[in-house]
């Protein structure tokens, strides 16, 4: 392990430049530890975002050596090249300041993809009975652990060249709800996620699944949405 780490950090907004810092190495050091060290010990004007520090909240995603990662669970030892790191804000999102991106569009797209659960039961009704081994429950389980970190969105080339594309996270969310038998907005949701801005724009390149820190495969859900959209279109229900 080298004594110190040379860290280039993006400073500015969409216009800016990388600034260089020397950060002491320590055992089990994470990339978030590095950014925190810079902000607390070297330059308090550095802006970055984090909350839980244990991989649950999805706040601290950044681009590390060109690859989007959750920084709180990324060890420096696994990503540093020749004792150096380059840390930048997530791609495909506007930069507010330094490492902080504006996530509004990312989450607005969840809403556009009808990512809200819509049921009919009230607290006075009995619990819904969902068999844990049913195909729908298994399909929803595969995508439900999303923490909304934006790593997939920043890694998606289609988002880069087609700004209206809803993106892997929003479509994955829609897929989990499509597989929820309690939900009553299925037709509306399928119409929202089909077409050029939705599942049909996906090229199944798989960067989202490759980079997802929770090992979710959004492309599998997107393929499922394409199949359901095709069936609905044949029936005239789309």
């Amino acid at each position: 392990m080298t004594e110190s780490l040379k860290v280039n950090v993006w400073r500015g907004t969409d216009v800016g430049a990388f600034a260089s810092y020397d950060v002491p190495r320590s055992a089990s050091q994470t990339v978030l530890d590095v950014v925190t060290h810079i902000q607390r010990r070297i330059d308090p004007t550095l802006a970055y975002r984090f909350a839980c520090r244990v991989g649950m909240c999805g706040s601290c995603a950044m681009s590390v050596n060109g690859i989007a990662r959750w920084t709180c669970r990324t060890h420096v030892a696994s990503v540093a090249r020749d004792g150096a790191l380059e840390i930048a804000p997530l791609a495909n999102l506007p930069v507010i300041k330094d490492l902080v991106t504006d996530m509004r569009e990312f989450f607005d797209k969840w809403a556009k993809a009808k990512g809200q659960f819509k049921g009919t039961k009230t607290r006075h009704d009995d619990f819904a009975r969902i068999a844990p081994a049913s195909p729908e429950r298994v399909a929803a389980d595969a995508g439900i652990e999303c923490i909304g970190c934006g790593v997939c969105y920043a890694s998606c080339d289609v988002v880069g060249w087609r700004p209206a594309f809803l993106g892997p996270a929003a479509l994955n969310r829609a897929w989990t709800l499509v597989n929820d038998p309690r939900d009553v907005a299925q037709g509306e949701r399928l119409r929202a996620v089909a077409g050029d801005a939705g599942c049909h724009a996906c090229h199944t390149q798989g960067s989202c699944g490759e980079r997802c820190p929770k090992r979710i495969e959004p492309t599998a859900g997107i393929a499922g949405l394409k199949r359901l959209a095709a069936r609905a279109a044949v029936r005239g229900a789309l």
Binding site: A194, G195, D196, H200, K226, A229, A230, L238
Partner: peptide, 15 residues
């Protein structure tokens, strides 16, 4: 026919 229905049918045709 709506644009999204056309596109879903085209995707199905291609598949």
């Amino acid at each position: 026919m709506s644009a999204i229905r056309t596109q879903a049918l085209l995707w199905y045709g291609q598949r």
